[in-house]
Design a protein around this nucleic acid. Structure first.
Lengths: 339, 339
DNA sequence: TAATTTTGCGCAACCGTTTGCACACCAGTT
DNA sequence: AACTGGTGTGCAAACGGTTGCGCAAAATTA
């Protein structure tokens, strides 16, 4: 039955007309007579003709595919972000080639390579936690394939990115705790390699200073964000000469580790504030009292939009220095309902 | 600077040799002299030559892309499954085109259409909850593009699929509850359109009968799997003339809704058993006492493997009836640690 | 030295579609 | 009778790479 797919040539041969006429007829070109158009279309649908996209992509040098590399889909932030990306891609007639780095810098490099050989029209990246060099993205500049980073952006210049401004969110969070009467506020921060860690720290400091409180750097401790790492940091916090009455944690997962640990020690009374606002919070009995919401869906949408704009932008004519899109999605503090 | 990418033709022109020689040199063809090879390769790397994959895909009629359509990445089952799919695809040199139906049958149809125009080499599908017709997958048969269903498989014949056998898992689950002394066991089941609902019911019945207990059909109630639907079903359960002392729920999410609801009524003492074994269970204070684990990663891997095998299988020569892969991944009951 | 094999390379077709250009035909205008 | 203008169609090149076949020069053999 179903042999090779029908081509435009076969239609031409059967109808004894040229392939160009068939092509134009199918594309409703104005210079083709109505009767010819009808004949062609009728036969085409009878033969279940489907244009060979590979030929078309080749001809136009476009694939209508955007690549997305992100660390971990099981993290709620990313699975939500990908929905935003997908929705925009869908709307603008692109499809999404997906790959997870699992926070492994080596794998990320290989994935970038793969995206290159697939010749995606553009690339969306949220870099892995362990990535410390960024040359593997350079290739894309040479190939004139736009790259947009989102959320986890590399600390380098001349890139397009979309990220949330955690400084303002953190400022709000610390302010919120201060207003609640807390004076000793700890922070479990992430690795210094992450831009986001600096922003959190800055937000924290600014909130303290603007409330005329002195900033104690020993109350900010970096963690590797694992459960074991979190417990270690918590031990330090709890044995600190100024034991915090409230703690800002790097994200909801860290908050959950920390809360579970304090509860296992039968410690109560420490307020936690966190980032991300995970849906699982709704299922928990003991949760952060507030979270900084980062709007992953919105970030994903925005990043995809920028990427597709870049793809369709007329080439940088003058070869001049082009502008870089640096979009910041404001983060806001969401106070959780008390249970 | 970076103009159009280098092509094989330019290399040929510069070196004053033919394109075929360049092509063969780059592919280490045996009939090319060593010196020519060296010259070609040297120049190629100097010019940052990258073969145009679109041309190659066109030539071979292959894209090395597999499409994946699934309902919802934020469901842990699917985000884990996609990792399995991706890992296999990666290993076997394919990439993954992803799309979420968000459990919307209409959107699913459009996505199938898109996958078709992208001419994926194969398709992996977990159908949406609301899908009730399946003709949109027929096109792929005509185009000779293999389709493998996983987890949520449609109730039709002549398809390839990978799914877990929930009957055995359910049997184990009910047996487990019976051994614990429960005699009145409720079940919150899913819509009857899902194959999985039937399997659960069958497992339930078999466990009861094999323990010489009579099966009470009114203790199995179907739900739409939303929180509101779950609460409604729970109300029915709790007002049942035989109030269950244990309940088997369709999945962990339903279990969480149900548990939360019973706790809001200050009801204790009902044991819940569920499916999926979500990681968030670890963060919960009140959880199902056991879950049927369905091994999403394994299912994803298996499905991808089968799909790629099908893609690379020599065409069905005789046009004869080909075999369909129906793989069942056994599910097992995992008893949760008491907190 | 002539015949034969091997080595190294080029020619040209091909994959399916689009598109600039030419051309033939017919009608209406000078 | 020559000219203009539209209408409908076909020719052929182009996109970038692969590959069967042929052919010349060099190396081997008789």
């Amino acid at each position: 039955m179903s042999d090779k797919p029908t081509t435009i040539k076969e239609i031409a041969k059967i109808l004894k007309i040229s392939v160009s006429t068939v092509s134009r007829a199918l594309n409703d070109h104005s210079s083709i007579g109505l009767t010819t158009k009808m004949r062609v279309k009728k036969l085409a649908s009878e033969l279940n003709y489907e244009p060979n996209q590979k030929a078309i992509q080749f001809l136009h040098g476009k694939s209508f595919i955007i690549g997305v590399i992100l660390p971990e889909l099981s993290e709620s932030f990313f699975s939500t972000a990908i929905s935003g990306i997908e929705d925009i891609a869908y709307k603008r007639n692109y499809t999404v080639l997906l790959a997870q780095s699992h926070d492994d810098a080596e794998r990320e490099k290989l994935l970038v390579e793969k995206m290159k050989t697939q010749r995606v029209d553009g690339l969306l990246v949220s870099v892995s936690k362990t990535t410390s060099t960024y040359e593997h993205f350079e290739i894309f500049k040479r190939l004139n394939i736009p790259v947009v980073f989102f959320d986890r952006i590399p600390p380098i210049k001349d890139i397009h990115y979309v990220a949330s401004n955690l400084e303002t969110g953190t400022y709000e969070a610390v302010n919120f705790l201060l207003k609640k009467g807390h004076r000793t506020i700890g922070m479990i921060n992430g690795p210094n390699t992450l831009v986001a860690s600096h922003e959190r720290k800055e937000g924290y400091i600014k909130a303290m200073l603007s409330n005329r409180l002195k900033f104690d750097p020993t109350l900010i401790i970096n963690s590797d964000l694992t459960e074991a790492g979190t417990i270690e940091v918590m031990d330090n916090m709890l044995n600190h000469r100024r034991k915090p009455t409230a703690i800002v944690t790097f994200n909801d997962y860290v908050a959950l580790f920390a809360i579970r640990y304090t509860r296992s020690l039968n410690l109560n009374g420490i307020d936690f504030v966190s980032y991300a606002n995970l849906p699982i919070i709704n299922y928990m009995d003991y949760t952060p009292i507030a979270s900084v919401e980062q709007f992953p869906y919105k970030q994903g949408k925005k990043a995809a939009d920028i990427l597709i704009d870049l793809i369709n932008k007329p080439k940088n004519e003058s070869g001049a220095d082009q502008a870089y899109f640096n979009v910041v999605v404001e983060s806001v503090l969401v106070v959780n309902d008390p249970k």
